[in-house]
Nucleic acid binder design. Sequence first.
DNA 1: CGAAAAAGAATGAACATTCATTTTTATTCT
DNA 2: AGAATAAAAATGAATGTTCATTCTTTTTCG
Lengths: 192, 192
Amino acid sequence: MAKLQKSIEKRNALVKATINLVNNNGFHATPMSKIAKMANVSPATIYLYFDNKQDLVNKVYIEVKATYTAYAFKNFSSDTPVAEGFEKIWKRIADFKLKEVEEAMFLAQCDNTPMIDEASRQEGLKHLQPLLDLWEKGKKEGIIKPLSPYLLYAYTINPLSFLMIMQQRGVFQLNQYHLEDAYQAAWSSIKK
Amino acid sequence: MAKLQKSIEKRNALVKATINLVNNNGFHATPMSKIAKMANVSPATIYLYFDNKQDLVNKVYIEVKATYTAYAFKNFSSDTPVAEGFEKIWKRIADFKLKEVEEAMFLAQCDNTPMIDEASRQEGLKHLQPLLDLWEKGKKEGIIKPLSPYLLYAYTINPLSFLMIMQQRGVFQLNQYHLEDAYQAAWSSIKK
DNA sequence: CGAAAAAGAATGAACATTCATTTTTATTCT
DNA sequence: AGAATAAAAATGAATGTTCATTCTTTTTCG
């Protein structure tokens, strides 16, 4: 008898096409037929890999978010001193957004629209825990201001999304100088 | 012969319905028929007020953006000292996002997706000039760091959008204490 | 050879926009 | 003032298209 042989390349092509088309046209303006065409696959084939359109976009979201956080926390361990850990993570995130523009844009769009299931959103949030823990530690040690994690996030990590969107739209060219400035601004806003 | 008498109430109802439905479902998942129903109007009537769906959403965007900036710059004049002017504007913006949650959410979604025409986007940006001028003045006077306006925006105004979305999703309850903290964080990140 | 994978065409629902009529209303005429 | 009128405003019902998903058939490969 024959064995399973679903092609991982096809699945990857589908994920990539989804990211690209959703970035340029939004979720509801990207038909399955176009995703299929861009991935060089028949529309029906998509349904061998995903239950339906919503499932496709949910899974892409979770996978990209996982890649993102894995990248962010590379070389970080929970015993790194707070200031150093924060700088490391922040700069890794900046790096990701600069290098993986497509993925980052996709996440930004998912996070700002009702495109993703609430469940998948929660799932994506979990991965951020190491950063929350670091902030908790920083507050206990009196190194950073005693602010809510949402404020900390809003003033340190989130601005990068805005900068990236401006860059993507060609309004602004983000470079290493800007990133250093941006890091200083982020740190100034939360350090005690 | 009779005169024009298109109802301003109907138009307002359409604008309001559009904001509400797009916030909850996204642009492409809100059919004209639903907008019509929520505004108590026939679908055909929408086309007496707007050319088509894209025109509708563009116009709503520009109008809401205009309301927003008018609110932000109320009681601000270009001869206000930099620090005071910044605090005034920042707090007005925070106020707007807290009080006009629907409008603010709508803007956030428009600014993070390919939902709006590039032309309408530009149009909406123009209104921000007073703030850019204030920053220019602040840099000249050595009061704020010599950063690009996009960095300044990213670290002072934009975080509010993130906080508001978190609040809207029920993850986080934004109150006056948080706002004072947030203002301090914003100012710390850009003052020299 | 046989089962899974892939394909392309078919299906049916949803939707933006238009069309043919009806309703409203501001003005004119008595 | 009140009825008549004509044009704009509003409507509900078509129209034609687009699209997600399914069905049937063909291809691939262990």
